[in-house]
Design a protein around this nucleic acid. Sequence first.
DNA 1: GTGCTGTGCTGCATAATTTGCAGCGTGACC
DNA 2: GGTCACGCTGCAAATTATGCAGCACAGCAC
Lengths: 296, 296
Amino acid sequence: MRHLIIYEMIEAVHRYGSIRKAAEDCNITSSALNRRIQAFEAEFGSEIFERVPQGMRLNAAGELLLQFIRQQQHELSRVNSQVADLSGVRRGHVKIACSQALIPYFLPYEISKYRSEFPDVTFSVNVRDRIEAEQALLNFESDIALVFEPAHMVTFEIIHAVHQPVTAVMSADHPLAHRETLRLRECIEYDLVLPAKQFGVRMLLEAAASRLGRKLEPVLETESFDMVRHFPAYSQAIGFQIPVGLNRSARTDMAYVPISEKDVSGGELYLGHLKGRALPVAALKFANQVAAALSN
Amino acid sequence: MRHLIIYEMIEAVHRYGSIRKAAEDCNITSSALNRRIQAFEAEFGSEIFERVPQGMRLNAAGELLLQFIRQQQHELSRVNSQVADLSGVRRGHVKIACSQALIPYFLPYEISKYRSEFPDVTFSVNVRDRIEAEQALLNFESDIALVFEPAHMVTFEIIHAVHQPVTAVMSADHPLAHRETLRLRECIEYDLVLPAKQFGVRMLLEAAASRLGRKLEPVLETESFDMVRHFPAYSQAIGFQIPVGLNRSARTDMAYVPISEKDVSGGELYLGHLKGRALPVAALKFANQVAAALSN
DNA sequence: GTGCTGTGCTGCATAATTTGCAGCGTGACC
DNA sequence: GGTCACGCTGCAAATTATGCAGCACAGCAC
């Protein structure tokens, strides 16, 4: 869309904080870009950048405009996907922000399944914690989010929610491996592998431990859910994960035992999008498929 | 916004159904406009007009695009008004769709009051019946609507609602003029002046009459609420109006008596806007003022 | 049929706009 | 005090849009 290229230029200037650097990115000279920005500001009726000795910084009006630009680009891509839909071919791009837990099994499977039906739909997947995920929706960086226990859900419109008990991960020969459910106090006797503090699973475990009057002292704390899942294979340590991040049939050398809801109440995995914003056709169809998958 | 002029051109072509006529409107030659439309369609990835021997007609993709264009223009004007608000000066334009009843007293007063505080805000007021009003919101022709008993309110987000008993309008020397309330059967004994069938007041009266097993036989049926209000001055006829359309202090030669709620249940006057759409600053402030005025 | 009128479309020369180049002035940093 | 990066600007070249004239086609009146 050549007539909207000025928007991309504005975004570039904002990103680089410098006309000269942004100009390089736009394959244009700085003078040309400079004049386009100036012409735009004149038309817009107000400056959108603050000129500081270090370069360009968006002012309040610019922030407002940037919000508009992103929304507008999102709407345009939605219209495009609807138009593509009209001609029978289902094309489009789905942008997903999700928790790490969805990465190993759930999303790869669901995306493959969707693409087997609509091969012209492409995807982008960004791992975001529950705070960043909401930001991604607001920035129009993502169409839909799939997050465990989101922090504040004011702008988050829920498509589907599913309960996820916190589940202990251990090697198949662990003393507790044969149990149906576990109490938290039993787990604490072993070495613990916990996700970092910003994650929902950790938050639920901490809350439960403090109710027991105990403190969690992990031998390994990590931001990688893969580490939490795989470390217990090589020791008697116990990791924690939510069921959607586990695949019982994949590894017979591991055991997955849910923690009793009496101790740890579990949390909700939410599938949602930005409130008041219509989804592109492809994103909507994919969201429906995911919602159906989560229901089982 | 020169870079968005193509949108106005598309709207012009749609409006005139002809490139040549639209070109005249755009102060451009038909060949230039023709090429711009073609270039746009190429970029957009799909034709948006159907070429018929009579000229150009939007196709399905074009309808989608037009919806996008209107929404986008609305959002832009909203951003503009927010930006103007930043610099202290409150500027902007408020577009109102309303029932006829609001025209004689209510809106002129409220608009004047608002403009005495913010003289740089301009208004457009369009009289729309309750079906057209919702359409006006959908087309972004209006920011807010003020309608009596809207027909279907799926896309209508209510800001404020106020009950309006149906009120009889008669000359001050009418036999019923001194009464506190009137029964419908009393009114029917006199000549009736009724608004046309599409209006809410008429609908409520018809429903009430059929409950009484009576049929309304107006001596004068009109689309003009002014006629309904003024005709009774010169005869013993009775007209009907809602309180917001009446101004007790203005005319001492007229009497206004509410119909008993036992007969005619009255209706709601709704102030609202399009669901899921943020209002420009000026429209929002004005809506708040109107809501406050309606509360009294 | 036969003009006639309207439609969208197109080749080409021209007008308008945008761009690149080079250079200016300014403030931050060492 | 020198260097660097910044935004900005005059001017000529390159690119793009426009206007003119004319084409092919479809509907319509006679």
